[in-house]
């Protein structure tokens, strides 16, 4: 299992966001994507999550271009974006049950335990706080297990205790042979982390 991307270029609304980004990711590794606002962190993550087509360049999973076999790639990937992807009219448990059902998994209770959501799991998501919603969203990572995690600002609106909890889960995932791509402004001081700085890349390109 490995993710590999070569000379990715992203153009949004005729504007060049980034150019010639190369990266690779192997089991047991975390890649921390850094860069200031507008440097294209989210766009890069969305390209790698199959949600955006790059203007040039290829992304390959296990040596196969993901354009050729997107279904297989999507099975191996969990993406957490800015939005919570939660239905306000359903409880956290119902939301997770839906996602695990939809992706044909069944580890909802485990996920609720991992993010300490059991006490609030049956309230409508509407009344939860921003941090509780974020945890409910992150719980999808456990409820629908996949080797590759693509995480866009996963710890925003979490307090320090839960950031620690999330960090432990992330490191455990990687220790067990998973891999993760992470875009965040905060330094999580993770072990075994490599960095990709989009600011530097755009400097070189100029």
């Amino acid at each position: 299992m490995s993710l590999y991307a070569q000379s990715l270029t992203c153009i949004r609304q005729d504007r060049l966001i980034f150019n010639a980004v190369d990266l690779s990711l192997n089991p047991g590794e975390i890649l921390w994507v850094k860069g200031r606002n507008g440097s294209g962190k989210t766009s890069l993550l969305r390209i790698l999550a199959c949600l955006l087509k790059p203007a040039t360049g290829i992304v390959s999973w296990n040596g196969t271009d993901i354009e050729e076999d997107p279904e297989h790639y999507k099975e191996n990937l969990q993406y957490v974006g800015h939005q919570d992807a939660l239905k306000m009219a359903m409880s956290a448990r119902e939301n997770l049950e839906f996602w695990s059902d939809y992706t044909e998994n069944s580890t909802v209770d485990q996920a609720l335990d991992a993010f300490q959501l059991q006490p609030i799991a049956d309230h409508p998501t509407q009344i939860l706080s921003a941090g509780q919603k974020k945890r409910s969203n992150l719980a999808r990572l456990i409820a629908c297990p996949a080797p590759l995690w693509i995480l866009d600002e996963p710890v925003s609106s979490l307090d320090t205790d839960y950031i620690g909890l999330f960090k432990d889960l992330l490191e455990k995932h990687v220790r067990n042979g998973g891999m993760a791509l992470l875009a965040t402004h905060q330094d999580l001081s993770l072990s075994r982390v490599r960095q990709l700085d989009l600011n530097q890349i755009s400097e070189v390109a100029r």
């Binding site: 999550a49 999507k74 990937l77 993406y79 939005q83 992807a85 939660l86 306000m88 939809y102």
Partner: peptide
């Protein structure tokens, strides 16, 4: 709410 893109990844 971002559900649609998650559905597409399913």
């Amino acid at each position: 709410d971002g559900t649609l893109e998650q559905l597409m990844l399913g």
